[in-house]
Computed example of a mutant assay.
Amino acid sequence: MLLLAGPTDTGKSTLALRLLEKAKEAYLLDLDPGQGALPGAFTLFHYREGTLTPLRRYLLGALSPRGMEAQAVVGALRLARLIPKGSPAVADTDGYLDPGFRLLQIEALVPAEVLVLGWEELYQALAWRRDLRARLAPPLQGVRRKTPAERRKNRLERLFAHFQEARPRPLPLGHMPAYPMEPPEPQRLYGLLDGEGFLLGYGRLLAWAGDEGLFLTPVGEEVARVVPTRLLFPIPALPG
Rank of each mutant, 00 (worst) to 15 (best):
R151S: 06
A91D: 03
F101K: 13
F42E: 10
D9H: 13
P186R: 14
F163D: 08
G174F: 02
D211I: 10
A166G: 13
R129G: 03
L156F: 07
G118C: 04
G213W: 13
E25H: 01
R48F: 08
R158F: 10
E107K: 08
A41M: 09
G34P: 00
P180A: 03
L117M: 09
P99M: 06
V73E: 04
T14N: 03
M181P: 07
G197E: 00
V226L: 14
E221I: 04
P168K: 02
G67T: 05
G36Y: 09
G34C: 03
D194V: 14
K22Y: 05
G240W: 00
L193V: 08
D194A: 13
L82E: 14
K12L: 13
R225I: 02
V114Q: 01
E222D: 09
T8G: 14
A207T: 11
R158A: 15
V90G: 14
Y96F: 15
R57Q: 15
L238H: 00
A149Y: 12
A137N: 07
P218N: 08
E121C: 04
A26K: 08
D194I: 07
T10P: 03
T217C: 12
R152D: 02
L63C: 04
P54K: 12
D98L: 04
E150A: 10
E165I: 02
A125R: 12
L2C: 01
A26P: 10
Y47G: 08
T53K: 11
A91G: 12
H175P: 12
G6S: 12
A209L: 14
F42P: 06
V74K: 04
F42D: 02
P177W: 14
T8R: 14
A137R: 15
L214F: 13
R57C: 10
F215T: 04
L232C: 08
M181Y: 09
L171I: 08
M181W: 10
P88W: 15
L3F: 11
E21M: 05
D194T: 09
V74S: 05
V143G: 03
L60R: 13
Q164L: 15
D92H: 05
L44S: 07
L17K: 00
E120T: 12
L60D: 07
L189H: 04
L199M: 00
T43R: 09
L214M: 08
G34K: 12
L159D: 06
L60E: 05
L29H: 04
L38E: 12
E150F: 07
